[in-house]
Amino acid sequence: MISVENVSKSFTLHNQGSTVIPVMAGASLHVAAGECVALVGASGAGKSTLMRMIYGNYLTASGRIMVGDTDVASAAPREVIALRRRTLGYVSQFLRVVPRVPTIDVVAEPLLLTGTGADEARAQAATLLARLNIPERLWGLSPTTFSGGEQQRVNIARGFAFAYPALLLDEPTASLDPTNRATVLAMVQEAKARGAAIIGIFHDHAAREALCDRQVDVTGFTPGLAA
């Protein structure tokens, strides 16, 4: 489902003496449907960089990144938009929303974008929020004022609202208490069971052990760090 083939990337900082920082070379990785793969490596090794390259918000210098039938590395913006709408989901560590939009609508939006009716989308969003223990009295409020853990759970609810065949998870269990952590682990398991291909970054050891079929150490893709 997700196939990264010999991918490289560098950053050029034009305003800081045109410094060129190579950050990735020769990265390859394959994830089949129903499989969960963890990206591991020390902080700064490029786990998030690789994940962003797959999602398309970082440009790829060379190589191919196939998600379904789309090569993210060479696709036009509208192809990437279509891919993100129906195929590729991403739970980032940060919640980015239009201020003043109620939480329930934030969570329902991916469903509305894929053609679910407004009532049905809200009902599904409500189910997810309840499952993640967001109190119902908060659903009508914007999540911008919520605590870190609550925002994280809203972000997860939004990321799991639509059943994407491919999912990227960046530290989904960070800043969660044990109960909610268990809920999120169960949700990832269910996504696997329905056949989603998942790539995740988990600093949470036990979560990684419980969910992932394999690990890929990105240190091997970092120029200058590879042994």
């Binding site: 918000n57 440009l59 913006p77 938009i81």
Partner: peptide, 15 residues
């Protein structure tokens, strides 16, 4: 793509 240009700007002026 909007988030690509904002998260990984390529041109010096955009940076």
């Amino acid at each position: 793509l909007t988030d690509q240009v904002l998260d990984d700007p390529q041109h010096g002026y955009t940076q």
